[in-house]
Design a protein around this nucleic acid. Sequence first.
DNA 1: AAGCCGGGGTT
DNA 2: AACCCAGGCTT
Length: 426
Amino acid sequence: MSRHQPPVRISIANSPGGAAPGDWLPVLQSALRGWFGRQARDLPWRRQCTPYAVWISEIMLQQTQVAAVIPYFQRFLARFPDVLALAAAEEEEVLRYWEGLGYYRRARQLHAAARQVIQNHQGELPPTAAALANLPGIGRYTAGAIASIAFGVPAPILEANTLRLWCRLAAIRSDPTRSSTQEKLWQLASHAAHCSDPGLINQALMEVGSQICTPRSPNCGACPLANICSARHLGLQARLPRPGRKTRYEELREAAIVVHDQGRFLLRKCRDGERWAGMWDFPRCPLEQLDHDSASVRGHLARHCVLLTGAKIKVGPLFATVKHGVTRFRITLYCYHATRANRLAAACDSTTRWISPEELADLPLSVTGRKIARLLTRHGLPDRTQRLPSANPIREAAAPQAAIGRGAAVSRSPARRSSRGNRDRT
DNA sequence: AAGCCGGGGTT
DNA sequence: AACCCAGGCTT
């Protein structure tokens, strides 16, 4: 840059003293093209960028990091290679392939959307952002991402990485969650995507956001956009975007009941509106303020079990305590053995079933459900998770242990010596 | 416009 | 334990 032509910096169009997009847009796009051409990561969905593959990747990537998605993406595409295969599958099998990825509603909506694509769009994903956004699970971001990346439509995107990037590039100090700020951010994103290669530009924006313009200590020295970055010019890059509110956590105490009968376990499918809707789980109930070691807890559990499953049971010993974090909840789950007390054929409808250890491997289970299943079948019984195609090396080889606040931690109860005094160490 | 959805990973 | 993540949906 010469002294007579000071470097142009990105700002919100029409803001006081702000440069018009015409000034910085070509610089931005050109810098992104050059940088992305050299630095783009080699990701599975960039090798196979069919509309279907892009769609699956974008749904999996919602609120989920790239590294966590990769093995799921590969297994999922191997099993459901196209829209027709996905639409033809049972929802439960789709959920089984999603197990461990979280936000299971995404999988159910994806499956429902696949059936809509077969029914209403001749089996082809619609090529416009507006039509895509009519499908379940596809919002403004995902619609723009698929439209631009898979179809070359100049549609804008805004997500965690580009929100942070734009707040810095344009030195946006207002609360980024406010709708007036969101409007400005989408406006900037629209300018950027207005070109002949919007898919490349959108991906490059996200890539710079995730690889260079990181939340803490952005690597401005390696940033292709440093020259036009307003925050860097003002020295504000470490203070933008403005942080949001802290999440307040809620402690929950719950009980899970493992009802045994002839080597099988009683499981139920979580209903719509419940936690883990569509997934299977051991019957569970809130413990409220009940002491998990009190006399009254067993009657409490037995009553709940009848209501949930129709099975009359006799509650036995506590055998494990599982800690599990989910969204803003911190759950402590007390796990009890139980036996069935009635010989009636209760508990055999479509949402309540007696499950053998072998069948357990095929069922989509909640995280804590899978944890309990492992405790029950740890000794030599098969775990289908390890038989899924191209096994996930991260999750299966070295399952995360003893996460503290989040994830799940298990502590087994010591061997039980009498019917009383069973004490859990957590 | 704001919170929830009832996740999971990293630091 | 705080913070983050290729958001969607509801109220």
